[in-house]
């Protein structure tokens, strides 16, 4: 029962702050809401006993990425936007309906398939403690090539980000 309560609480925090990210006109509030949302997700991972992932979530997202966002927002000195959303009534309506439609479709499909299986909830959570050791063994054996590729990607991103940020006016330089 405590599990259910905590799940709904975390769920509420995540969704509310996510909606705030999307709907609040001021970007700095968006960024803060995002940080809250990330933290909520980390908590969710924690409750799922994925401790390592939860930690990484906190460090990478709530830490590094959010710092980056806030830095950029600060750098730009952004104010509350008068028109935060793009123009066009028709396209707005279309976009909103489509988003809602897709969500309801996925949710509907999920509930239907689980009720047809009839055992959606009966799959018990395995009670094995996920050790970090096990995970890292997997990372360095089965996924070692992807891991190396990831290293190369990160190097390239560092170089690319620096090159982009240093460019004076880019291709439209005067």
């Amino acid at each position: 029962m405590t599990e259910a309560i905590s799940f709904y609480l975390i769920q509420f925090i995540i969704l509310a702050s996510a909606l705030a990210v999307v709907l609040v006109p001021n970007p700095i509030y968006s960024a803060i809401s995002l940080a809250v949302s990330m933290t909520g997700i980390a908590a969710l991972f924690f409750s799922l006993e994925a401790y390592f992932i939860a930690g990484v979530q906190l460090v990478v997202y709530a830490g590094a990425v959010m710092v980056l966002f806030v830095m950029v927002v600060m750098l730009f000195d952004l104010k509350k936007e008068k028109r935060a959303f793009s123009r066009g009534t028709l396209s707005r309506v279309l976009k909103t309906t489509l988003s809602v439609l897709i969500f309801s479709m996925i949710a509907g499909a999920l509930s239907m398939s689980f009720s047809e299986l009839g055992s959606g909830d009966s799959i018990a959570k395995e009670d094995i403690t996920r050790s970090i050791k096990e995970l890292s063994a997997l990372l360095y054996t089965k996924y070692v090539f992807a891991f190396e590729a990831l290293a190369i990607l990160l190097v390239m991103v560092i170089v690319g980000a620096i090159a982009l940020a240093k460019a004076k006016g880019g291709t439209h330089a005067k």
């Binding site: 793009s86 396209s91 976009k95 489509l98 897709i102 996925i106």
Partner: peptide, 22 residues
């Protein structure tokens, strides 16, 4: 050239293909 319009097209395509699946 409106990126978000393009995203809308992608979404519409996703919707249609999901409809087929469901």
């Amino acid at each position: 050239g409106n990126l978000q319009r393009y995203a809308l097209y992608i979404l519409a395509g996703l919707f249609v293909s999901l409809s087929f699946v469901v």
